[in-house]
Amino acid sequence: MRRWISPGAVVWILIGAAYFLIPLAATLLFSLRDQTTGKCCTLANYEEIIDDPAFWTSMRVSFIVALETIVISLALLVPTLYWVNLKLPRLRPVIGFLALVPFVVPPIVLVVGLFAVYQDSPDWFFAEPYGFLPAAYVILAFPYIYFSLDAGFRAIDIHTLTEASQSLGAGWWTTITRVILPNIRTAVVAGALLTIAIVLGEFTIASLAVFDTFPTYVQYINQNKTYPAGAVTLLAFALTWAAMVTVAIGGRRRTSTMVGH
C-alpha cells in the first residue's frame, strides 16, 4: 500500500482547486473594492445591497416561491410514493421514468410549453409569481425530491410500519404524518433544501416570465453595478453552499445512500 500522495495526484488536485477557488477569490476581491476608486478594501458594496429595498423584495418573493414549491412537492410526492411502494409497486418504474423527463425537458423548453398551454389562464395564476413559478418549479425539483424520498422509502420497512400503525387503530392520515414522515425526515429535509437551492438559483423561467426573483435581481445588479455585483454573487454562492452542505452533512450522519447531484 502506498503511503504518500503521488506527485501526479498533487498536480491534478492543485489544478482542480485553482479552477474552483480563483473565481471565488476574484469575486471576493471585487466585492471589497471601492466603487469610485476601484481600490481595496471597503464593505460599502455589502451595505449597498443590504440597504437596497429591491434586494429584500426579491428575496421575499424567492423564499415564498421556494416554500410553496416545497409544500406542493411534498404534499404530492410523499403520499404518492408511500402509496406506490405500499400498494402499487408496478407503478414505481413509471414514476422513476417520469423523474427523468425533466432532464429531457430543460427549463428553457418547459417555459416555452407552459407559455403555450397557460397563456390564456387566469391572471392569479399566469401573471402572479406565486402562481406560475411554483407550478413550474415543482417540476424542476421533482427529480431531486423524488431521488431523495425514494432513497428514504427504501431504507424503511413501510409494510411493517403501516401494519403496526393500523393495528394500533391509526388511520391513513395519522400513519403518514406520525409514523412514515418522522422515519423519512432526513430525506424530506434533504429534498426541501435542494429545492431551496434550485429556486434561489433559477433564472431562466423567472426571467422569461418577467418576474422579479432573487436571481433576476442578481442579474440586474450584475449589469448595472460592477462591485456590488461581487457582494451579491458571493451571497448567492453562500446560500447554495449552506443548503448543499447541510444536505451533505445530514446524509452522512444517517449514512443513507442519497442519489442526485
Binding site: 437551492a197 436571481p215 442579474q219 454573487t233
Partner: peptide
C-alpha cells in the same frame, strides 16, 4: 449546482 447568473459574474 452553482450555475447561472452568479457563476457568470
Amino acid at each position: 449546482n452553482f450555475a447561472g447568473i452568479p457563476l457568470a459574474f
